[in-house]
Amino acid sequence: MHVLPYTTEVRADTGLTSPKLGIWLFLASEVMLFGSLFSSYALLRTGAASWPDQSAVLSVPLATLNTIILISSSVTMVLAWTALAPGPQAQNPARFKLYMGLTLLLGAAFLAVKAIEYGDKFAHGLFPATNTFLALYFTMTGVHAVHVLVGMAVNAYLLVSGARMWRTEPERFANRVEIAGIYWHFVDVVWVFLFPVLYLL
C-alpha cells in the first residue's frame, strides 16, 4: 500500500510526524469550540440577575465519581499505548487489548453515570428550557458526551479491527493508538474544566 512520507517517521526539519501535527491542529480547533461555550457561560452568568446554587442543583458526588472514572481511563489509555510503543522494551499486544478494553469500559461507565444524572434531573422536572444555567449544563455536558462517544468509537475500532494492522504495520498501528490517546486525554481535560465550572463554582 502506498504510504505518504512522514506518516510514522519524523521529518528532520520540523521534528513532527504528519498525524501528530494534524491531531494537535484539530485539538486547537476543538479548544475554540469549547472556548465559545465557556465564554457564553461566562457572559450569560455575569449578565444574569440571579443564578442558582449550582452544587445544590447538581450532584457533586456523582460528578466526582465521574471525574475519577475519566482520569483513570486516561491512565489505562497510556498503558495501552506503552504496551505497543516502539523501543527497547518488549511489545505486548495482549496487554494492549487488556488496557484498551478497560479504557472502553471506563468510558461506558462515565456515560452511564451521566445518563443517571440526566434522568434524575428530568425526573425532578429540570429540563434545558427550565433556566439558563440548566440550558448551559445540558448543552456543555451534552457536547462533551458526544466527544466521549466519538472517542469510544475510535478506541473500539482500534481494539476490534486494529489487530490486523498490528501484524502488517506495527509501527503505524502504535502511532494510531498514540493519536487516539491524545484525543482521549483532551476529552478528559475538557471534563476537568467542566466539573468545577458547572458543579462547584
Binding site: S29, E30, G35, S36, L37, F127, A129, T132, A135, T139
Partner: peptide, 18 residues
C-alpha cells in the same frame, strides 16, 4: 468552531426551548 458552538446554542433554543 465558535460559530459551530453558536449554532449548537441556537439549535437548542429552537428545538429544546432554551
Amino acid at each position: 468552531p465558535p460559530l459551530e458552538g453558536a449554532a449548537i446554542l441556537q439549535g437548542m433554543d429552537r428545538l429544546a426551548g432554551t
